[in-house]
């Protein structure tokens, strides 16, 4: 059983995001790319399946700043292979990515593709289900648990309100992972560095395909018309002010 984990480097939201002078894209000067949090869960779920037995994990990443680090981290965490898809993927949309990945996925020939349920900038849809659509493969997304048995996957899909729905999924399939069954593992830097010394990154070409389907007109921060009234001062001042407000509104024990 082979599992392909599709990972993406995404802009780190800890940094303030600024709009570039073209008005439709992000200013890249300060952008730092990190592994998409949900992809980290997808990798973890794949590694859990590997621990269950009989699974080979192939991590794939579309090249961005930091994608080599991401792939070596995947290797250090326990992926068996790591594949870099070279190119400048900044500015390509998910439709283009998904189309480009079709031939690559067929070449790697996994039984299952796991990827994060979403990424921070899925303007035109989430890449996992788009990929499944292009491959005409089965898919389930918002998945929080995957089990494999007898050539099929049984998954728990998370519905609104957190209820789980169980599905049996014929393989090959693409699963969008909402959360792994355990929190993603921390991998010590020395293991990552070890992987950098001894591990191999394979490179497989998959140039973007097709035109951007949605034309960007304007990228902008949400209007801040109805923002919160901001309280200022040190912790004690703010606390005092809040207590006054809560009393006024009759909240909890401060009522009456």
């Amino acid at each position: 059983m082979r599992i392909l984990v599709l990972t993406q480097g995404v802009p780190d939201l800890v940094e303030g995001l600024e709009v570039a002078s073209d008005g439709v894209s992000l200013d890249q000067d300060w952008l730092k790319y990190v592994l998409n949090d949900f992809d980290d869960h997808a990798l973890e779920e794949a590694l859990q399946l590997k621990a269950d037995g009989g699974v080979e994990v192939v991590a794939v990443s579309l090249e961005t700043d930091g994608s080599r680090d991401i792939l070596f981290t995947c290797l250090a965490k326990g992926a068996d292979r790591a594949v870099l898809v070279p190119g400048d993927w900044f500015g390509t949309d998910n439709h283009q990515k998904a189309k480009a990945l079709v031939s690559l996925v067929k070449a790697i020939a996994p039984d299952l593709v796991l990827t994060g349920v979403q990424a921070p900038a899925d303007a035109d849809g989430q890449v996992g289900v788009l990929l499944a659509g292009n491959l005409r493969w089965a898919h389930v997304t918002t998945v929080k648990e995957v089990r494999l048995a007898e050539g099929k996957a049984t998954v728990v899909k998370e519905l609104e309100g957190g209820t789980g729905a169980r599905y049996q999924v014929a393989l090959p399939a693409v699963l969008g992972i909402q959360a792994a069954r355990v929190p993603p593992r921390y991998v010590p830097v020395s293991k990552v560095r070890q992987a950098m010394k001894t591990g191999q990154l394979e490179e497989m070409e998959a140039p973007p395909e097709g035109d951007t389907v949605l034309q960007a007109r304007k990228l902008y921060p949400p209007p801040s018309g109805e923002r919160a009234a901001m309280l200022e001062g040190d912790a004690d001042t703010v606390a005092g002010e809040l207590v006054r407000i809560l009393r006024e509104k009759g909240i909890g024990r401060l009522a009456g």
Partner: peptide, 8 residues
Amino acid sequence: GEKGLFEL
């Protein structure tokens, strides 16, 4: 105990 991180 994260010696690798310290080294980095």
